[in-house]
Write a protein that binds this DNA or RNA. Structure first.
Lengths: 201, 201
DNA sequence: GTCTATAGTCAGATAGAC
DNA sequence: GTCTATCTGACTATAGAC
């Protein structure tokens, strides 16, 4: 039962998307299983056919979020330039695209609802988040070697990710900047703007 | 009853501090009134002598947080230099000192638990947060006029506050940087590091 | 796969004695 | 001010019919 090779269990995915939106706007504990089911035209009894606990649903949303942003950043790095000074720009753009794009709900839940997980699940999810953040270390180190950012690469990573993740709290797609322009601006503001415009030993 | 000129109702303040810590670590809805009371050696009945609802307690914690950081930043500006290029540094330092200092619990609750407020209370608390963030506009504008930061002052404010507020998620006082050193580094990384080292028209 | 009905638990809040 | 005792309602999750 429940198909070993999952992906595209349509009902389950519909619940995931709806619940992600509800969790983003109301938080995990203020959203009841009854509400989630009702939003998909079900009763709470049916919900538990698809998920055995409410927490399993939350974990699924978060894992979807991590998978998605990891894929986005990897794709950006693979398809783009190999110029070391542009790696960071690519990552900033990919991160913002995944964060503020069609999966915004799941991403916001991943960032701000992890305290609702049981300790065991918290450990697993935070390990995935750590794995994602580790992807940033090499490009930041390269940028530091080029003098584009501070040499305290860990601090740079926390600062950049903080600024990027905070956009989920204020960015509105209807505003004056689209995601690409936002990425370009935030990147430019983060790297040393002098020296290094094309030339350097 | 309950003293018009409040401040230093010792019991009430003790509950505030304890609850702020519990809310930070477990979240608002996963902390019951019984737990809060028990942590102060009371039963839940006694709690409601000091606060008429659980939400009133949350609002009080958040208002304490806003008052505190607003005061910290204002004091920093009043007591410090008048050099326009150092205003921003002063604000960064004051913000981090208030955020990561002895009121860290209340600050974290203010930043990350506002979804637990009723819509009415949310409006009020967010208005206070907006008032605080407005304090940043003038110094950022001055820094932009000096070429220290991007001219999109709103984006600069969101970026800087995002990076600063994120520190609450990772900063540990026992780490290699104390708060002053952290402030100095984050400030230096945020402003244009070329041009403008002392001289400029 | 969805339903109804409900078990079992625990929450916020109140009343009134001390 | 703090207690005990309790009301009332909501929640997650289960059982079993369809």
């Amino acid at each position: 039962m429940r198909q070993e090779r999952n992906n595209l269990l349509p009902r389950r995915n519909a619940i995931l998307a709806t619940a992600a939106s509800q969790f983003r706007h109301q938080g995990f504990e203020r959203t009841s299983v009854r509400e989630i089911a009702q939003a998909r035209g079900m009763t709470s009894g049916s919900f538990f056919y698809h998920f055995s606990t409410k927490e399993e649903l939350l974990v699924a949303i978060m894992e979807e979020g991590v998978r998605d942003i990891m894929q986005s950043v990897r794709d950006g790095l693979a398809g783009g330039t190999r110029l070391p000074e542009l790696l960071l720009l690519s990552m900033v753009r990919s991160h913002l695209k995944a964060l503020l794009g069609p999966r915004l709900d799941a991403m916001t839940v991943l960032l701000y609802e992890w305290r609702s997980l049981s300790p065991a699940a918290q450990t697993r999810v935070m390990a995935s988040r750590d794995a994602y953040e580790a992807l940033w270390m090499a490009p930041i180190s390269e940028a530091a070697a080029l003098g584009l950012v501070d040499t305290d690469v860990l601090l740079v990573r926390q600062t950049v990710l903080g600024a990027l993740n905070w956009t989920a709290q204020w960015y509105r797609p209807c505003g004056r900047l689209d995601v690409d322009a936002l990425a370009q601006r935030m990147y430019t503001n983060a790297v040393s703007s002098c020296g290094r415009i094309g030339s350097e030993p």
